[in-house]
């Protein structure tokens, strides 16, 4: 039965991907992508990647879906002009050939994967004791390959700086996104009053449980960011002007703590991002607690968009 479920899931995911290719209207393709994100969450659970399923659900299902739907609706007026530039059949034939070739090459590679599957799981298991955390993925993210996570938090920050740098000069330092005003006793305002407190509790729970069970700061931060965004969309709160000092300090606070602890590792444990033995769990906790607010704020501001309104 599990094979039947996997086959059904794979077929459904491919059908959605094919729909996104052939759909005439961008909005229809975007709705297909929202469903595609949800189905991928199920694929990750079938691939025994519950942490990845959690991340896909929070980021792929929630944040990316909302972002694309909003963008598709806003770009509707440019739709007809853009669609007119559909390439002729020679280009389409060449593209199909290229895509078929890439798929065939990948399929051959998949079918020729080495039979004793190479795995780093035994080595990870052997060294998990030193990290003090139970969840192997948190161990990998914050101890064995901590430099990846450090680079990632800086990439997220750079993405935010990239989005901000698109602001027209006259509103530089202003507030991101349009001012959402909503009828106070409307459905959206009600949802934005009820859901965020629950979402905050769930976000912190998923962040907290991440040490020993699937979860962690990225999933928790994206849930908290989504909740704040809901309040902004309902007009209950407004994005702060990007020129505020506290905001910029909060954004860089997490990565700075990460770098500080990493640098301290050079003196105490002989290498950048090495933790002195016995202190690993404490330092990992410190890094995670410092990163959570910065990540949540960065993800939320990336979604809030390009500054459009003067600060005042």
């Amino acid at each position: 039965m599990s094979e039947a479920l996997n086959a059904g899931l794979a077929l459904f995911v491919l059908a959605l991907a094919a729909w996104m290719v052939v759909a005439r209207d961008t909005f229809a393709a975007v709705v297909g992508f929202v469903a595609y994100g949800l189905l991928l969450t199920l694929v990750w659970v079938q691939l025994h990647g519950v942490d990845v399923a959690l991340t896909e659900g929070a980021i792929g299902g929630g944040l990316t879906g909302a972002m694309l739907v909003a963008a598709a609706a806003r770009l509707r007026r440019t739709e007809a002009a853009a669609r007119a530039e559909r390439p002729g059949w020679p280009t389409r034939a060449a593209a199909a050939l290229l895509a078929g070739g890439v798929t065939a090459a990948l399929a051959v590679a998949v079918l020729a994967l080495p039979v004793p599957a190479p795995s780093l799981a035994p080595e990870t298991a052997a060294n998990m004791g030193a990290t003090g955390v139970g969840n192997p993925i948190t161990g990998v993210l914050l101890a064995f390959r901590a430099v990846d996570t450090l680079l990632e938090t800086t990439v997220v920050l750079l993405a935010l700086i990239g989005v901000w740098s698109l602001a027209p000069d006259r509103v530089w330092g202003g507030r991101p996104g349009p001012r959402h005003r909503a009828d106070p006793n409307e459905t959206l305002a009600y949802l934005a009053r009820v859901l965020p407190p629950i979402g905050l509790v769930v976000g912190v729970y998923i962040f907290w449980v991440g040490a020993d069970l699937p979860g962690g700061k990225f999933q928790g931060a994206s849930i908290i960011a989504a909740m704040w965004l809901l309040a902004v969309m309902a007009g209950l709160s407004d994005a702060p002007p990007i020129s505020r000092g506290w905001l910029r300090l909060a954004l860089v606070g997490g990565p700075l703590v990460f770098i500080a602890i990493g640098a301290a590792g050079v003196a105490t444990a002989g290498a950048f991002l090495a933790y002195p033995d016995g202190l690993a769990k404490l330092l990992i906790k410190a890094i995670e607690w410092a990163l959570l607010p910065s990540l949540a704020l960065t993800l939320a501001l990336i979604l809030a968009g390009v500054p459009e309104r003067p600060a005042r």
Binding site: V31, V34, G57, A58, G61, G62, L63, G65, A66, M67, V69, A70, A73, L188, L191, L195, I198, G199, V202, I223, A226, L230, M233, A234
Partner: peptide
Amino acid sequence: LLAAFASVA
């Protein structure tokens, strides 16, 4: 938790 997000957008 995030089910309604796409509809809100």
